[in-house]
């Protein structure tokens, strides 16, 4: 357990020292959402209609940005070798790194989301649903992302490949995340999206770290 916290602390220190990382994610989130606004035009009711989908889609894309480097930097400088040999269970190591990724991107998106949503005229009654759905959904994005990052470690054309692998797997989260917000806008209280997002999170928590750890072992071989 102490190894887990040591890795988590170091990951957070490293990404906070290069503040650029967190800022880039938020900036990407904001600019991508703005592109949608430019795409559909300045009419407020049109923006308000698509706000839930746009916030979720852009958040999802932003969460994918830094995934490529989740293991790649450690792979290139030999840290991954040392971590695997340090006696810390690889699953705990993957878990620590994934949590660090979520804390530095998922949390950042969570903080930025209300602002972006406001700019897109998201109706007031939907903010609660937006925050809850992001809170339940973004950790799953990071967990699935860890699997994708481990699988593409050392691959030619890594970044594009990672998107191709991950985006189809992200579709369920997008569907239920956006549906939760949409439901709140329409005032139909439905627990289904939350239940599914929660279920997906639990499934991802139990399966993804093991899968990613196994993929990492293969990557080092």
């Amino acid at each position: 357990m102490s190894g887990f916290f040591a890795i988590l602390r170091r990951e957070l220190t490293l990404s906070l020292r290069s503040q650029g990382d967190v800022m880039t994610v938020i900036a990407f989130f904001a600019i991508a959402a703005a592109l949608f606004a430019f795409g559909v035009g300045p009419e407020l009711n049109v923006q308000s209609r698509i706000a839930s989908g746009v916030v979720w889609t852009t958040a999802l894309l932003a969460a994918m940005l830094s995934l490529e480097r989740l293991f790649a930097l450690d792979y290139e400088d030999g840290t991954l070798d040392q971590l695997v040999l340090s006696g810390v269970e690889p699953v705990a190591m993957v878990f620590a790194k994934t949590i660090a990724h979520w804390l530095t991107t998922g949390m950042a998106l969570l903080i930025a989301a209300p602002v972006v949503a406001m700019a897109l005229q998201l109706p007031a009654q939907a903010y609660g649903a937006l925050m809850i759905s992001l809170l339940l959904g973004t950790p799953t994005l990071s967990l699935l992302g860890a699997v994708g990052a481990a699988l593409t470690l050392g691959a030619k054309r890594g970044g594009v490949l990672l998107s191709l692998l991950l985006l189809p797997l992200y579709i369920p989260i997008l569907i239920f995340g956006a549906a939760a917000v949409e439901g709140a806008i329409l005032g139909v209280a439905s627990t289904t999206p939350y239940a599914v997002l929660g279920g997906l999170l639990i499934a991802a928590l139990t399966l993804c770290p093991w899968t990613a750890a196994s993929a990492l072992r293969h990557a080092l071989e």
Partner: peptide, 22 residues
């Protein structure tokens, strides 16, 4: 038990695994 084996060895490869930001 690869983790236990890792714990009983010290390894220095071609890559130094030193983080520049620290």
């Amino acid at each position: 038990d690869l983790s236990a084996h890792g714990a009983r060895l010290g390894f220095a490869g071609h890559l130094d695994a030193v983080k520049s930001a620290q």
